[in-house]
Nucleic acid binder design. Structure first.
Lengths: 195, 195
DNA sequence: GATTGTATTGAACGTGCGTTCAGATACTCT
DNA sequence: AGAGTATCTGAACGCACGTTCAATACAATC
């Protein structure tokens, strides 16, 4: 046996990335073998190397793609006029975006240490880029006198940690809808930096 | 060669746990081999099995010990009278305790998935126990009318996520002292649930 | 100084790892 | 129909894994 009927790289490629994302998120990068990923796709391990030069690059591509999507999605979001409107948009956007991609979010926070120095630096830079969007909102509000965060850098990190934490407990069909969760977190964030 | 000069279980046991904690936190549970842990201690891999029945139990013992210490330390903390005093004490305690044990905190959040169902449930129960301490403070304050969190359960999770996030960026000798960080976070937490 | 108990070695077990590659089959284009 | 390209198999490489255990050297007790 060799090439399989109906095989196409535009189909197999995405399926490999999807399988890797799911398995890495569930069991951890180091605990997942190339053979397991291949089995999930229904292919032999050797075939994966048509789509990635090695295992680490497969992880890196997933993380890079996630961060690029995150930043692009935020830039596509309608921007409010006031810092207050922009902060509310950020809070609701971050929760919504992350709840749509639990596996990728989990990976981004857990598996950075499995990257080599260059790949690690690339992802870190994207993360800082995203954080800076929030920090700028806080700085503007601070300058306008409508926020009174004791330290906008720390407030940035505190808010992002708080929002990202939603992914650890939120379950679809649970006590609260996504919108309700967004409203509750927005209330806490708003007050935490209020003047 | 067999037994080594100066060898004692009261010395080797803790050294094994310390080496495992350090390596698991740095590289991840699955990525660290028993041989690496043994090498860090200066012993052969077989010797580890005098101190643990298997690798997973070694991880579980580290997590269990950390959670027990966390709860015991909080109970040993002087309890303020008002909910406001107790909340401030919690915020400062959590940051301080976690900054003292970065490796154990990291493990507790990252490696739960490497536990079997029973061990996982045991750690989860301890975590919920700890979270309930904070939730009770918020409920008391809410009843007394001095807090106005929109949802004390979510406020609990949000505050803990925010505080635990300090471990991801704090570096000794950086821009801010631990006390200053505690003060800044207390300001944000206080306002976030303020009436 | 002999005896008993404790701590460790070192080799071995079977298994699975990431990765490579020659060969084989399916698709695409003329 | 046939040539050329894209896709995948299956076997193999050397290496490392978690765990077990008989043999053995040291420590503690008398």
């Amino acid at each position: 046996m060799a090439r399989k009927t109906g095989s196409h790289s535009e189909i197999t490629g995405p399926r490999i990335r999807a399988a890797a994302l799911k398995l890495f998120a569930r069991h951890g990068f180091a605990a997942v073998s190339m053979r397991q990923i291949a089995a999930e796709v229904g292919v032999q391990a050797g075939a994966l190397y048509l789509y990635t030069p090695d295992k680490e690059t497969l992880l890196f591509d997933l993380l890079k793609e996630h961060m690029d999507e995150l930043i692009a999605a935020w830039e596509a979001e309608p921007q409010g006029k006031s810092p207050r409107e922009r902060l509310e948009a950020f809070v609701r956007f971050h929760i919504r975006f992350n709840l749509d991609r639990p596996d990728a979010v989990f990976l981004s926070y857990m598996e950075l240490r499995n990257l080599g120095p260059a790949n690690f630096a690339a992802i870190e830079a994207l993360r800082r880029d995203y954080e800076n969007r929030l920090e700028e909102i806080l700085d503007e509000g601070q300058a306008a006198g409508i926020f009174a965060a004791p330290d906008t850098k720390l407030a940035t990190l505190a808010i992002i940690a708080m929002l990202t934490g939603v992914n650890t407990w939120y379950r679809e069909g649970g006590r609260l809808s996504r919108d309700r969760v967004g409203a509750i977190y927005w209330d806490m964030v708003r007050k935490s930096v209020a003047a």
